[in-house]
């Protein structure tokens, strides 16, 4: 069986005082195309490192990563850059927007880099900013945006080329409840379009929006469980009625 993401024995150790820090420690993971998966776990358990390994932002100490059938753990920086531009959208925990470019220019940049026409890139960028409720900030530079606005611009940038795989690290970390709702609606749209989502999150709403939950602790996946299809609608309604009555 081969999913869009396959890892085997994936590990990343950092030198520490004394024993190395085993940030990611032997992760075997398989994510099917079109699936949405959330990763939860206590702070420092290795969630961001895992995402960075899958997205090619860090190199594994050991183990392999395969994306859509292609071994990627040994790819050059340039090959990774190409892959990320076309097929893998990445939303960082720290947003990494280009300071000198306006919000909309940041969003359309990856589209221009793959040869989309200026008009089409701008249209697509504005459409995403609109859906995320930050279109009125399109011409602002990042340092004039709030944390939550920067987060939404970073998300729009990750989605502008309609990547088959979206990797997002705390995509709602700086957002209020309303903006979180916008992002969840956007994710629902991605799922309908069969885009694959791997989400690192502490937010129960985001975690619960996924089909599957991975729980990490000390660099390892300690639990892999499906969230979908468990409860019939009637049972859910009965439970709610019982609680809220």
């Amino acid at each position: 069986m081969s999913g869009i993401i396959e890892t085997a024995g994936l590990s990343r150790f950092y030198p520490g005082d004394g024993a190395p820090v085993r940030a990611v420690d032997g992760v075997d993971m398989s994510v099917a195309e079109g699936e949405s998966v959330s990763v939860m776990g206590p702070s420092g358990c290795g969630k961001s490192t895992l995402l960075h390994l899958v997205g090619g932002l860090e190199r594994p100490t050991a183990g392999t990563v395969t994306i859509a059938g292609q071994r990627v753990d040994g790819l050059s920086e340039a090959a990774w850059a190409r892959l990320r531009r076309r097929s893998v959208g990445f939303v960082f925990q720290a947003f990494h927007l280009v300071d000198e470019l306006s919000a909309v220019e940041n969003v359309e940049l990856p589209a221009l880099l793959v040869g989309t026409s200026r008009r089409a890139a701008r249209r697509r960028a504005m459409e995403l900013l609109e859906r995320l409720g930050v279109a009125d900030r399109a011409t602002h530079l990042p340092d004039r945006l709030s944390g939550g606005q920067q987060q939404r611009v970073a998300l729009a940038r990750a989605l502008v080329n309609e990547p088959v795989l979206v990797l997002a690290d705390e995509p709602t970390g700086n957002l209020d409840s309303h903006a979180t709702g916008e992002i969840l609606r956007l994710f629902a749209g991605l799922r309908e379009a069969r885009q694959t989502l791997l989400l690192v999150t502490h937010d129960p709403r985001v975690a619960a929006s996924a089909d599957r939950l991975l729980t990490m602790r000390d660099g390892q996946i300690v639990e892999d469980t499906r969230l979908d299809g468990g409860l019939p609608r009637q049972a859910v309604l009965a439970q709610i009625a019982g609680w809220e009555a």
Partner: peptide, 20 residues
Amino acid sequence: IDAQRRELLRRLREVQLLAE
């Protein structure tokens, strides 16, 4: 705790889908 979280996330998922 893990089992309980799993159970509650499943419920939250269903409630969110119903709300949508």
